[in-house]
Design a protein around this nucleic acid. Sequence first.
DNA 1: AGAACATTTGCACAATTGCTCAAATATAGA
DNA 2: TCTATATTTGAGCAATTGTGCAAATGTTCT
Lengths: 120, 120
Amino acid sequence: MSNEKGTEVCKVYEEHLDKILEAKKKLPEEELLLDVADFFDALGNPTRLKILFALLEEELCTCDLSNIAGLSVSAISHQLRILKDRKIVAYRKDGKNVFYHLDDEHVKEILNVALKHMEE
Amino acid sequence: MSNEKGTEVCKVYEEHLDKILEAKKKLPEEELLLDVADFFDALGNPTRLKILFALLEEELCTCDLSNIAGLSVSAISHQLRILKDRKIVAYRKDGKNVFYHLDDEHVKEILNVALKHMEE
DNA sequence: AGAACATTTGCACAATTGCTCAAATATAGA
DNA sequence: TCTATATTTGAGCAATTGTGCAAATGTTCT
């Protein structure tokens, strides 16, 4: 037996039908869910996390972040683009420098909850 | 000029030295940071997110989750292993079924903050 | 033991990721 | 304008990821 996506369906399907329909109904819409996944994905990388933790305190330029993370300026710039695209950081230009800062209060909250979680 | 990791260092290094050292000092330790990255990485995938949102309400078996996510049982099982390894879900065996549930109160909190964040 | 069903596991493969290198772009000052 | 510094961008490549398939493992029932 197959469902609409061509994947097999277990026999408990009928027995668990109510739970399954209920769960499906309460899932966030596909588009919202993909946005949330993108958001977490942006945080789920050591380099990008270092950038974000560093920016918790104060704005820093690309070169500063390169020093802090111990990676090439280019690597940091690539990662900053991802964070910029996802509206997690924003920037301010000052002469030759580009200073980045967190664009989002939720990020601070989430980083702190996660830290607390891991430390337990 | 190069730092200890072989990457180039900008000239503003000296001027920004205080900020950089301060930021480095406040970064979480490497191991903790990697754990946090792993945690977010686990949430940063549409399939795993669907699983977690579905489990917000009640425990579900592998087959139920396969139906809900619209993916093969095998794909779900692979993703459940990742969530299990990272202590994000736990399971209970009941006959032929294996029922999964969230292993972590922080996850609920974080999922809700993230949802709120994306909806704004 | 044998059949039926649920789940897990190993393999293979396409797609994505994260980095480096080199080149392009931008800004400031002589 | 020419030079120096800071940043971004694109190409290329090794490593990782997510999935389906097929086989293996577990569990229950007859």
